[in-house]
Design a protein around this nucleic acid. Structure first.
Lengths: 266, 266
DNA sequence: ACATCTGTTCTGAGATAATGAACAGACTTA
DNA sequence: TAAGTCTGTTCATTATCTCAGAACAGATGT
């Protein structure tokens, strides 16, 4: 009974639109998501975690395996590389992934730190390229990784160039959940911060996303002034000085962002 | 008698196929595949191409959009970045993607050409990392891209280290379709070639995959001698000399492959 | 202005996904 | 060694949900 209720709620809360949702495919997606969360799992484990029937999960998994989307090692299932074909295509389609990738490599070499290219999709920040300098921090930020916009430097750089109604939409959809004790937690605080970002021309993340990590982000605009995405540099707080965080790195980031803009627009 | 035989064959042939396929989810996957093939499409276009009803496609697409898997621009649908999250995770999980990525950068700088890391999955070669040297050819080979094993240098390097019954499985599943006029077209030819690859210690692709393109591949083995994947260098035929193709590049590729093996196994 | 596209909504009928029991095999524990 | 408890898988039935087709409105093009 509890399980049924749980499932019902999930299905009811879902998307605002989609008048004719294909619930079976949604169930398949739920399974993939959980497989992702758990970093691989077995049939019963998934069924329990999702409140689904064992045989239901089995049917979906065996279908996904036949479609080469899911791999299995013994009885352990995990997501395979097939979806990388689709996702890699989507990434390659993006303006920023082609032009951005080569430019951030230079920035990574110059700063020695981790550099990311981020674009917005469905109100979230999606990392589409990452380049490591020789002393870059090790984070599990692979292309495809997603983070809320309001807790990252790149995300705030993107938000700062969005019309207010768009920001409203995003806040309505995802809320303003803090990620660390430094995170922004409410709407007015966010507005103040975005105004500062706009004035300075770059965004800062002072351990607002990951404890001990500081990031500097700058937006990338198309010729009409609309924001396409952002780049950011991430470095451990312990390593960089205040001057680097507030001046040197921002200059380097903005400079690279400008080069990317020029490449895209001309 | 015939029925029994037929049934037996079916049961034997599809031990890896789903016995309880969730056809609805399969239909969703067909739609994603077609969207990928067409590089974006509209409802009617997809319905026609897939032989499905318009409203059926509409239902699936609106569900996928609500799930943030598909994006739309007006009435044009396309695959979004969501699947890159799953695919990027799968890629990041692979041993070779972490260790391989940093090493092939050096090889790309040294040769100036395009360098790829390839692993096998479901009998196909999957590119999980690509690095471009300063004069690298422009191919649309992004991470996630898939090619048949028998037409590429990396693929042949992988096949050469597989047990015969595994090769049989793969040939049964995918056939030996040629990609260019130089491609291998039958089983015995493939066997001869794999023997040569094994003797030499590297694989060559002399315009067997893409006209005008030559590639050199070398396998990467784990400590037990099982093949994990391969790396390859791709260059235009017009640019490289015979000596480079047969000696210099193979030496560089094997050297890098060795370094990767050492990093993985120790 | 018309004609022909399009995407979307709606409803019934038919297909099928979900269910829970039952089974066999693996593994743990006694 | 044997009992006991896991597991994944199969199966048949029922309730559910997908699918098709007609109908609509809006866009597009003639």
């Amino acid at each position: 009974m509890n399980r049924l209720m749980g499932e019902k709620i999930v299905l009811d809360i879902m998307p605002d639109r989609a008048r004719n949702p294909v619930t079976t495919s949604r169930k398949t997606i739920r399974i993939l998501e959980k497989l992702y969360d758990l970093e691989g799992a077995r049939v019963t484990e998934l069924a329990d975690a999702l409140g689904m029937n064992k045989s239901t999960v089995h049917n979906h998994l065996s279908t996904l395996e036949a479609e080469e989307i899911v791999i299995r090692d013994g009885n352990e299932y995990d997501i395979g590389l097939r979806l990388l074909e689709f996702g890699g295509y989507a990434r390659d389609n993006h303006l920023l992934s082609r032009v951005g990738a080569s430019e951030i490599e230079r920035l990574a070499n110059r700063t020695g730190e981790l550099v990311n290219v981020v674009v917005e999709e469905f109100g979230k920040g999606v990392y589409i390229a990452c380049e490591k300098g020789d002393r870059a921090v090790e984070l599990n930020q692979y292309p495809g990784y997603r983070r809320p916009l309001h807790v990252t430097a790149s995300g705030k750089a993107i938000l700062a160039h969005m019309p207010d109604d768009r920001i409203d939409e995003i806040v309505d959809r995802h809320g303003i959940e803090p990620a660390t004790e430094n995170s922004i937690t409410d709407r007015s605080e966010l507005e103040d911060e975005l105004r500062r970002v706009d004035e300075r021309g770059f965004a800062l993340d002072d351990e607002e996303s990951v404890p001990g990590l500081r990031c500097v982000g700058a937006s990338i605009l198309d010729s009409s002034g609309a924001v396409i995405g952002a780049i950011s540099v991430s470095a451990p707080t312990s390593r960089i000085t205040e001057a680097q965080f507030r001046d040197e790195i921002p200059d380097a980031v903005r400079s690279t962002a400008n080069v990317i803009e020029l490449n895209i627009n001309y």
